[in-house]
Design a protein around this nucleic acid. Sequence first.
DNA 1: ACAATACGTAGGAGATTTCCTACCAGTCAA
DNA 2: TTGACTGGTAGGAAATCTCCTACGTATTGT
Lengths: 104, 104
Amino acid sequence: MSDVFTALANPTRRELLRLLLERGEQPVQQLADHFDMRRPSLSEHLKVLRDAGLVVEHPVGRQRLYSLRPEPLREVADWLGPYERFWRARLADLRDVLDGLPDE
Amino acid sequence: MSDVFTALANPTRRELLRLLLERGEQPVQQLADHFDMRRPSLSEHLKVLRDAGLVVEHPVGRQRLYSLRPEPLREVADWLGPYERFWRARLADLRDVLDGLPDE
DNA sequence: ACAATACGTAGGAGATTTCCTACCAGTCAA
DNA sequence: TTGACTGGTAGGAAATCTCCTACGTATTGT
């Protein structure tokens, strides 16, 4: 869980996930083209994402195609569950207060 | 957004959020009692949570009561939205494959 | 076989994180 | 007012993060 949040804490890595979501499977060079950063640094970010289980990779010729693996994000959503109940309750309270106000 | 994920990346800080969720508003000392860590370190963790907007604090006498502020977690849930659609589609694909198998 | 391409890893610099001890300011109670 | 209590901040050590350049390995095309 910490690994996943740590991976998501970096904007470059979130952008990598977004690219993989929108465009699907892609080689490293194609991903790197969209960042103002050297390719080895991107490789390191991809390693962090791999270690967190957020991407998987498989070689095709001399390329390595990366693709999204959303299961850890599902765990994040599960983790959020109890807090979601909390904020929904707060929204309900707010609505009650607003309903009780005069000249609505 | 990075601030929120960075705050959530640390297990001590996630545990602090959990305590505030389960027990509600609490002073620092009461929170600190549940960690094997010096109080100033906890204060620093609370500062990270405050800066991320995940907790708010107000003084009562010589204590400072901390409470949960779930709005940033709601933003996390919103951020997850597109990925959720992605994993739901994958689950649907998986079900289709399973449905198509012989001797089910 | 050789040059070019794709990508990872090594090693290092500078910033940041996470813990600590010491200390300071504000509040309360005697 | 003095002493105890609550909690933040200063400063520092060790680890980790994030970028870089240099280099190594595997694959492809000529």
